[in-house]
Design a protein around this nucleic acid. Structure first.
Length: 104
DNA sequence: TAGATGACTCACA
DNA sequence: ATGTGAGCCATCT
């Protein structure tokens, strides 16, 4: 069933417009269970496929980037976000109040 | 089947 | 902003 969840995560991430980010919890809620925030992170970790899943748009509730990125480290994630128009602080923090994708 | 693990979240200090 | 403790869920061993 993990492919199902993975697909859902993929779709949700693809709905995120450029210059926007979402929290793990948001993805979990989209999957139908806010408690799956952890599982979401787990999946992205076990599926380092940025070509399909823009996981660099996913941050934790504090707006901080993941500690260890699968395809080049957190530094790569920071670069991708900045490239998308998201300001990332030197501490790898993003302003959720401005960049969090609220779903329009 | 059961126990341990983790890219999480929330509350409190 | 950081640290600790508790809760939650699917996967891995």
């Amino acid at each position: 069933m993990r492919d199902d969840i993975m697909e859902a995560i993929c779709e949700y991430l693809l709905t995120i417009p450029g210059g926007r980010v979402v929290t793990y919890k948001q993805v979990a809620e989209y999957l139908g269970n806010p408690g799956m925030a952890r599982v979401v992170g787990n999946y992205l970790h076990r599926n380092p496929d940025p070509e399909r899943y823009p996981c660099f748009k996913v941050v934790n509730s504090k707006g901080k980037l993941s500690s260890q990125f699968g395809f080049g480290g957190i530094d790569a994630q920071k670069a991708r976000l900045e490239a998308d128009g998201v300001e990332v602080s030197d501490d790898y923090y993003v302003d959720l109040d401005k960049y969090r994708y609220k779903g329009v």
